[in-house]
Computed example of a mutant assay.
Amino acid sequence: MSAPSTACAAHALRQASMQPAFPDLEGHHPCFSTTAEGHAKAARLHLPVSPACNIACAFCRRDFNRVEQRPGVAARLLKPGEAVAVVERALRLIPNLTVVGIAGPGDPLASDHAIDTFARIHARWPELTLCVSTNGLMLPARVDDLHAAGVTTLTVTVNAVDPAIQAAITPKLAWQRKRLDGLAATERLIANQLDGIARAAGLGLTIKINTVLIPTLNDHHIGAVAERVAAAGARMINVIPLIPEHQLAHLREPTFIERHKARAAAARHLKVFTHCQRCRADAAGVPGLTDYTRDLYGDDLVAEPTFSHG
């Protein structure tokens, strides 16, 4: 690509990112606000109620601690009833709290815990925006339950739409009480993700995609991902730089230029979210600005083995 065309692409990406993707959510949901001003206005609360996962991602290392600032980490695991008490405390502590989400530490749709929690919260605080982040494997089967529980915003982690690429990222999964490996696993995952996105869009949910940018694996493939998920009904994409962990610890984090090229490729099809802070599964506050996590959770650590939701 020539220098002028690169500059034009950069300018177009900056201009597009300055326009709200969802006017009704701008300044109300930090993870669906595309302007810096909107992102900084409202707080969100993540509830770590999901104990298990149904896929195994090569980059994922789950843990329970208070130190690491990344997805898949929480101080403790909550039961649905405990989560309701945390929301009650959070509303007293965080005056600009508008969003309650569930993003781990396992996948929210791999068990009933998240939907149970959402239903309890929606019944008590219907004004809160409810948000879920899932790998999408169980989305076609559970999207009606999410909708009934009051969930209106949805994030699906889609790292590839080519089964061969996805096989290097998610080599195995559990489906209908059986283990699937390789292409059988990734073909099922991708089909369910796209079907689930389409069903969610049909129900009126607002849909964002998370895509982990992995050098040498899917860095050339981001535009294809954005095109397919946009056709299914997604309206925003968040390209997240790889944190080298677990089986991908030998890879490096993508460079600024690689991140820019991936986002520019995605921007041809979807609005691009650029304010991601790679939040913990128990995050509380405005991403990157305020953190109330330590004030909300007790000292007891409950550790259970989990895999990645993304």
Rank of each mutant, 00 (worst) to 15 (best):
P105G: 11
I94E: 14
A114D: 09
V100E: 00
V100C: 10
T129Q: 11
A103E: 01
T117E: 09
H122P: 03
G104K: 06
G106L: 02
A83W: 07
A103W: 00
A103S: 13
A90W: 07
L93I: 12
A83P: 04
P95D: 14
R120F: 00
E82P: 11
G101E: 01
V100M: 03
G81Q: 10
G81L: 05
R120H: 02
D116H: 14
H122T: 02
L91A: 14
R89G: 12
T117L: 06
A103N: 05
L128C: 04
V100H: 01
L97I: 12
A83M: 08
T129H: 07
V87L: 01
R89S: 15
G101C: 01
R124S: 02
E88A: 15
P105K: 05
D112P: 10
R89I: 13
G81S: 08
T129V: 09
V87T: 06
V87S: 03
V86P: 07
N96R: 14
I121A: 05
R124Y: 00
E127G: 07
R92L: 13
A110C: 13
S111H: 11
V87Y: 05
L109M: 12
D112C: 11
A114N: 08
L109K: 11
G106S: 03
A90M: 12
G104N: 07
T129G: 00
A103T: 12
G106R: 08
H122E: 05
V84W: 03
A83S: 09
T98V: 06
P105S: 11
A114L: 04
G101P: 01
A119K: 03
E88Y: 10
A103L: 00
W125T: 06
L91G: 09
V100A: 02
A123Y: 02
V87D: 07
T117F: 04
L128V: 06
G101L: 00
D112G: 10
R92F: 10
R89V: 13
T117V: 11
L97V: 10
R89C: 11
A85L: 14
P126S: 00
P105A: 09
A110T: 11
A119H: 00
I121R: 04
A85D: 15
P108W: 07
I102R: 03
R89M: 13
